[in-house]
């Protein structure tokens, strides 16, 4: 039983539809994670910087505005710049399979589309972070 997984949940860009972000934040909390919720209207710079300060294991972005092909790569780039290249970047929203594949290929983690189960999201983060932590002493 290791320390709690810390996840930053953010709504990137101008989009204020936060239903999904909140439902996921609750699900992660209920799975025993520490969720840092930034609220709506976060720039990639704010998200990456908050992720670094909070020393999170993962960043989950919710995007329904269609700006995902801009925002995911930008957050990834800034995380790398700030020494947070080991932070898992994941998320979800209205993202087509094609875009998901392209983002995955660029190093972003798994993305979840409409209808995804929060259980799958929890399980993915637990497995992924568990695997990453296995390589380090407690």
């Amino acid at each position: 039983m290791g320390r709690a997984i810390r996840v930053l949940v953010a709504k990137a860009g101008l989009d204020g539809h936060d239903r999904g972000a909140k439902v996921v934040a609750r699900a992660l909390r209920d799975a025993g994670m520490e969720v840092i919720y930034t609220g709506i209207r976060q720039t990639p710079e704010m998200i990456a910087e908050a992720a670094v300060q909070e020393d999170v294991d993962a960043v989950g972005l919710s995007l329904l505005s269609g700006a995902h092909m801009h925002i995911f790569p930008e957050v990834q780039r800034l995380l790398n710049d700030k020494g947070g290249d080991d932070i898992l970047l994941t998320g979800g929203g209205t993202i087509s399979d094609e875009d998901m594949a392209e983002l995955r290929a660029s190093g972003v983690g798994q993305l979840f589309g409409p209808g995804a189960s929060t259980r799958d999201i929890v399980e993915y983060i637990q497995t992924e972070i568990g695997g990453r932590r296995a390589g380090e002493p407690s």
């Binding site: 860009g13 101008l14 989009d15 720039t43 505005s65 700006a67 801009h70 925002i71 930008e74």
Partner: peptide
């Protein structure tokens, strides 16, 4: 689009990636 809904011009840095999307 979202920039317009938020009262921002298309050339506002906040609007990168969002112009004309929604």
């Amino acid at each position: 689009d979202l920039p317009t809904l938020m009262g921002r011009d298309s050339d506002d840095p906040w609007c990168m990636g969002e112009v004309g999307k929604c």
